[in-house]
Amino acid sequence: MTNPYVPILVMMGVAGVMALGGVAASAIIGPKRYNRAKLEAYECGIQPTPHAVGGGRFPIKYYLVAMTFIIFDIEVVFLYPWAVNFTELAMFGLVAMMGFLFLITVPFVYEWRRGGFEWE
């Protein structure tokens, strides 16, 4: 029994039991009392509507904000370690980072020019 994978196997088994067991246990022993609120779809606290508002259109701003956030989020993920190691990375790091920043800016410019930030 020197196989190094035995613990992993055991862990996978335990994980499986936990995952399935939890669902099964709650299904079996949990009390089932339904009411209207519980049966409704959960939509971030917004009142569910049968159709999207405005004749099939729904505001896309939310996604724009989210995606713009992701752009800058990723930018920060790279910027932070670069800043920490700035001296060591030296010129190469600077040039690479500037290139990265430029590429990040291009879609931002696109979004801006296409009116993505005009908040009616």
Partner: peptide, 8 residues
């Protein structure tokens, strides 16, 4: 990349 700027 230039194409995206062209779009803009």
């Amino acid at each position: 990349v230039v194409g995206v700027l062209v779009e803009a």
